[in-house]
């Protein structure tokens, strides 16, 4: 009983640590730079896939699997490979999307990108084994010979350390000159755009950096759960992280941490604790999404700055306040 509880608690903690890294990376892109990266989960997925296929080794002939890059590399390399692959893909995506386009246009394109990526991963069976995905990925620290709970604690330690390093890095960037540039773009894109090419470059930089951390978080995730398939990374997963930022306070790294604790961790776990018959499980997991969407709308309406607001937000007092939609002034 106690060991089951221990196991449960540690897995929640591991997920929290992983989500925190991801949330901080997304906060850098969305909260600080104002990029609506609805394709964030794709970069996590790339990291997870690449880390997975570089850990499990080549496809076993009899199993009808097929995936690229099958290799059995020692521990930190697959994670680094995952992060690098995600960064590599985010570079052209960032270069293409962040140029000239209006923010909501970018958001739509990135959302479409995420939807398409799922299709490709499912249908291009030679890439990452299609809809079945990759599974049976060896866990990295098994050789240490720890107990199940002990292993979880160790894994949490590693994931937490990564999250902490990401946090320090995010804090550093957020208060650096680059962070200031990014905030100024977020708060007044047209004014910042007049400054020139530096803006574009700054945004691409943060997009690739966020992509790398996303890839790393995916890699840490896949090594923990041991399997990865298109079902693991629906476009809506990005939405949970975005909601977490909205609730916690986008633009504020502490807010990002708080938000990831509140939404993906707390809400999911609390709902998971409701005793259910198997028939109800599907309904409740659907309602969980409805609940997250409702919470997001609710927070956007009442506290758009989130629980821990970004103190460096430039207040929009004298910006042209006319709504482009109603022609009415905005307050």
């Amino acid at each position: 009983m106690s060991s089951a509880w221990d196991y449960y608690l540690t897995s929640v903690l591991v997920f929290f640590a992983i989500d925190t890294s991801a949330g901080l990376a997304l906060n850098l892109q969305f909260g600080i730079a104002g990029i609506y990266n609805f394709g964030f989960v794709v970069f996590q997925a790339i990291g997870a896939y690449v880390a997975g296929v570089t850990t499990i080794g080549p496809p076993v002939p009899g199993l009808q699997e097929s995936y690229i890059l099958g290799a059995r590399l020692p521990f930190p390399i697959p994670w680094l490979a995952g992060a690098a692959a995600a960064a590599l893909v985010s570079l052209p995506v960032g270069l293409a999307c962040l140029r000239r386009l209006r923010g909501d246009y970018q958001a739509m394109v990135l959302l479409v990108f995420a939807l398409l990526a799922t299709t490709v991963a499912t249908d291009a069976t030679g890439l990452f084994n299609g809809a079945s995905g990759i599974y049976g990925i060896p866990q990295p620290f098994v050789s240490l010979g720890l107990s199940r709970a002990g292993y979880n604690w160790a894994y949490f330690g590693v994931a937490a350390l990564i999250a902490f390093v990401v946090y320090l890095g995010a804090q550093r960037i957020s208060f650096s000159p680059l962070g200031r540039v990014l905030r100024s773009i977020r708060d007044n894109e047209s004014a910042a755009a007049a400054v020139g090419i530096g803006v574009y470059r700054a945004r691409v930089k943060v997009f690739v950096l966020g992509g790398a951390v996303a890839g790393l978080s995916g890699a840490v995730m896949v090594s923990y759960i041991g399997a990865w398939s298109p079902g693991s990374w629906a476009y809506a997963e990005t939405f949970v992280l975005l909601s977490a930022l909205v609730v916690g306070g986008s633009g504020n790294n502490n807010g990002a941490v708080l938000g990831t604790f509140l939404l993906p961790v707390l809400v999911t776990q609390v709902i998971g604790l409701i005793p259910l018959s198997t028939a109800d499980v599907d309904v409740v997991s659907s309602l969980e999404w409805v609940l997250i969407a409702a919470v997001t709308l609710f927070c956007l309406w009442l506290w758009p700055q989130g629980a821990l607001p970004d103190s460096r937000r430039i207040r929009k007092i004298l910006l042209p306040a006319r709504s482009a939609v109603t022609g009415e002034p905005q307050s």
């Binding site: 958001a107 309904v283 999404w289 409805v290 409702a294 956007l300 758009p304 306040a321 709504s323 009415e328």
Partner: peptide, 30 residues
């Protein structure tokens, strides 16, 4: 429209519409 009149930047409208889409999608599933 209430969100727009409340003055949420065009940006957050993306989040609003995606929220609505997600809610509709999973309500259908329910």
């Amino acid at each position: 429209m209430p969100f727009v009149s409340r003055g949420r930047a065009l940006f957050s409208m993306v989040l609003v519409t995606v929220s609505v889409g997600l809610a509709v999608e999973y309500l259908i599933e329910v």
